[in-house]
Nucleic acid binder design. Structure first.
Lengths: 110, 110
DNA sequence: CCGTTGGATCGAAGGGTGTCAATATAGAAA
DNA sequence: TTTCTATATTGACACCCTTCGATCCAACGG
């Protein structure tokens, strides 16, 4: 899973690589998941308890749990159970990979 | 549509901003559209003719046209008709916005 | 052991998405 | 105008996705 050098603007993506990346963007393509990810990513200590996420939305607990599962399956977050509670944290490798994919090659002094 | 400073990892996204951004990621959440975007983004002269895109896939012409429409509605590409042909080009402001949103704040010298 | 609480999973309902064949539209050429 | 070619739009179908209530599982406290 190479993650270098503005792939989007330098060469056409291979079919395989596109199939690999698309699901990650798809996971980001929902407002609830986007907010969940930003809450997790900006959480103090780098992690957030589910018990803090669920009440922040006007959605049922199973729905939030479902969205968290999708984010985890996309490789965007990780979870860890400690006692009764479950904590989620960002996986920066994944967001970094997407960011570098979208970045433009440094202005060819047009 | 502010686009500064690693919003994802610094503060929770507002409901409104999440609703604004999610559709753009959603447009990227399909392998065909990702490949289309990368072909357009890496096209010589900054633009690519539809007549070059359509035969590159094992899909019908209406299907490609549909995906291009979605990418355009998401603000990721623009189209221009010149004579019989239609040319698509990248809108870098949009991909730049996404990239900066995903970027991490420069390592707090952990 | 039992009851309670945090979280995940299941199953179903409703709306959305990707794909196609058929058709429509825009421009060039005859 | 008539015809041909390049894209876009329409309508239909199968599948997927978000959401919920109901239920299950794991961990702690009596």
């Amino acid at each position: 899973m190479s993650s270098c050098c503005a792939e989007l603007t330098t060469a056409p993506l291979s079919e395989e690589r596109a199939a690999e990346i698309a699901p990650v963007f798809k996971a980001l393509g929902d407002p609830v998941r986007l907010r969940l990810l930003s809450m997790i990513g900006s959480g103090a200590g780098g992690e957030v308890c589910v018990c803090e996420l669920t009440p922040a939305f006007d959605l049922s607990q199973p729905t939030i749990s479902h969205h968290l599962k999708l984010l985890r399956q996309a490789g965007l977050i990780d979870s860890e159970r400690r006692g009764t509670w479950v904590y989620y944290r960002l996986r920066p490798e994944t967001t970094d990979m997407l960011a570098s994919l979208l970045r433009r090659p440094a202005e060819v002094t047009a």
